[in-house]
């Protein structure tokens, strides 16, 4: 391959890597919202706890934050999932029975509390200066193989998470979740333990988000509160799921790759505009992203690929 082709490939690898990370987070949200109708507005909180757990457990030095535990990466990533799951369990025990919009407010509030803890408890997280440097798997292979191998690892993880989510939604457990979402009273009348099922969904989704956070930390090689900006780690994940197709695991993955691609990778287009327009192009681009989302919401409210549940008897 020529140098240009290698460069272009590495650029697409970079975009796809973040796409894969967002795909895992979006799959987590799909478990919460797409399966069970749990309006989780605190995604950034679960991503952050996963990211910081893995960062602190693997960071080489303890300067400025808790650290020097020297955990291997796979163990730290499992711990990240565990930490996010435990947080969700505690949070969910208190809040999961709230109606969707109230749950959104509660999760948003808790994510905000976590963000403030992360910013202010310097002994634990390094505060605004963050945790650095973090290791990324396969780094020793150098360019161009290191990013490619890392992407392949993440794609494998996306595949596993997708498989788990598919298994979950197709199982009797998944049918109960959909029943709860559509008609909670009817599900309760059928003898389903509403609270328990909702809590299980909440924890499972949060576990995926925690894993996504750990992947994000090691991809960035650096963890600070800015990395888990709510704009990208909460709002954008919602956009991905809604645009891709809420309730559909494949939709969540496609939405993640597509929206991240549009969000981060359209900036090169400004280089092709005449220079007097180019100065304003950055603002125009954000406007166009908003416009595209409006069009999707109005023209295809079910997303690019909508949910494909078994057809109900009334043929709706």
């Amino acid at each position: 391959m020529s140098a240009e082709a290698v460069g272009l490939t590495l650029y697409f690898v970079q975009i796809a890597t973040l796409g894969a990370i967002y795909a895992v987070i979006a799959l987590g949200l799909n478990v919460n919202w797409g399966f069970s109708g749990l309006m989780n507005a605190g995604i950034a909180g679960f991503v952050a706890i996963g990211a910081y757990t893995s960062a602190i457990l693997t960071a080489p030095n303890g300067a400025g934050q808790l650290g020097a535990f020297g955990w291997p990466l796979w163990a730290a990533w499992l711990a990240a999932m565990g930490a996010a799951g435990v947080l969700a369990l505690v949070m969910g025990t208190i809040t999961v029975n709230l109606r969707s919009d109230y749950l959104a407010i509660a999760t948003l509030g808790i994510a905000e509390i976590l963000r403030l803890i992360v910013r202010n408890e310097d002994w634990l997280t390094g505060g605004p200066l963050g945790v650095t440097p973090l290791a990324r798997p396969f780094e020793s292979y150098g360019n161009p193989w290191a990013p490619v191998l890392f992407l392949l690892l993440l794609l494998a993880i996306v595949a596993v998470v997708y498989w788990l989510a598919e298994r979950a939604i197709r199982s009797p457990w998944g049918r109960v979740q959909r029943a709860l979402r559509e008609n909670e009273a009817a599900a309760a009348a059928m003898g389903k333990d509403v609270r328990n099922f909702r809590l299980q969904s909440f924890v499972l989704g949060a576990t995926f988000m925690g894993l996504g956070g750990a992947m994000l930390a090691h991809f960035s090689k650096y963890m600070s509160p800015d990395v888990v900006d709510p704009l990208t780690t909460t709002f954008l994940v919602w956009v991905m799921l809604i645009a891709g197709g809420s309730g559909n695991n494949r939709g969540a993955i496609i939405g993640a790759f597509l929206i991240w691609g549009i969000w981060a990778a359209t900036d090169f287009l400004t280089a092709y505009l005449p220079s007097d327009v180019a100065t304003r192009a950055a603002y125009l681009r954000l406007f166009l992203i908003g416009l595209a989302l409006q069009i999707i919401l109005i023209r295809r409210p079910e997303g690019l690929i909508g949910e494909r549940p078994p057809r109900p008897a009334d043929g709706r």
């Binding site: 590495l10 973040l18 090169f268």
Partner: peptide
């Protein structure tokens, strides 16, 4: 001068920087 907007966000910054380094060379 090849300009790129990082939206004041580290992930976007990494993405656009990769473009500058790998594609724009």
């Amino acid at each position: 001068l090849v300009e790129a907007d990082d939206q004041t966000n580290p992930q976007v910054a990494q993405t656009v920087a990769t473009r500058l380094v790998q594609v724009e060379n």
